[in-house]
Simulated assay, not measured.
Amino acid sequence: MARRKKIYEGKAKILFEGPEPGTLVQYFKDDATAFNAEKKAVIEGKGVLNNRLSEFFMTGLNNIGVPTHFIKRLNMREQLIRSVEIIPLEVIVRNFAAGTLAKRLGLEEGTALPRPIVEFCYKDDSLGDPLVAEEHIIAFGWASQQDLDDMLALALRVNDFLSGMMMGVGIRVADFKIEIGRVWEGDFMRLIVADEISPDSCRLWDIKTGQKLDKDVFRRDLGDLADAYTEVARRLGVLPAASAVSKPTLIN
């Protein structure tokens, strides 16, 4: 097999040069990190689960007219994606108080917010991905006001889609983060959802019990992370109901 050119390696994924111009191959690793990579582990099967779950969510968004970078899944760990110019911001949508928002404002975790709150963080691990205001974003040229308006609209549409879908399987979407990239079609530029959507990038709580089904399981040592992700996949129908939780057999 020909050696592929690595374009970028992050904490959870590797990007390789794609087979056609304007494409990349995104590989999902089993690595788990928390607290800006201060806590690390390898969770067997995590990359397989996130590949399938991100495929599921991105395909659903594409089907309702929310553009994403996802083209198709290639195998158990890889998917073909569009190459995009990533805007250096994490876009966070919060429906319930959790994580840094709860700490900043002294809110009890699980408090319902009066409406979805969208926050922006500057993507820089060395700085801890600091929260930034729209004034910073425009002043430093990371995005224009029109970009911000479009990003807000995209984020809220993703929130409506995810919240509705997960509610249907008994899971509450407390918050999530996405990345957004620019693509050019001739002289026309548009913004699309990029990176991934998976339990790595969401806070997912069982509606009845409050059980955490996301990376907080790893952050807080609440159990087996693969079990939590497998439960999400099972409820969504990405896994057959009879699959063993710890050693999932993914459907094609």
Score class of each variant (00 low, 15 high):
D187Q: 11
G99I: 06
Q146E: 15
G65Q: 05
M166I: 02
F161C: 07
I192C: 11
R52C: 08
E135R: 15
M189V: 09
R219P: 01
I92Q: 04
A2V: 10
G22F: 08
A153Q: 14
F120Y: 15
I171H: 02
M1L: 11
E78Y: 05
R190V: 00
L105R: 15
P199K: 00
K208T: 11
D129N: 08
V42L: 10
V173K: 04
F57A: 09
Q211F: 01
D227K: 15
R219C: 10
N252L: 13
L222D: 08
R220G: 02
S201E: 06
G170D: 01
A194G: 03
G47P: 06
E17C: 10
I81K: 02
W205E: 03
D30E: 04
D214E: 07
R235D: 03
D150W: 02
R203V: 07
K6S: 13
V158T: 08
V93G: 04
F96R: 13
S198Y: 14
L89V: 08
G181A: 03
V217E: 04
L131M: 13
T68W: 05
R73K: 14
L154P: 03
M76R: 12
E231S: 03
K123G: 12
D175T: 07
K11V: 02
D124W: 13
K215Q: 06
E38P: 07
L24G: 00
I117R: 01
S198P: 10
L105S: 08
R182F: 00
M165Q: 13
I197A: 01
G170M: 06
P240E: 12
G65T: 09
M189N: 04
Y122N: 06
A37K: 14
L24E: 08
K11E: 00
A112N: 03
W184K: 15
V217H: 08
Q145F: 07
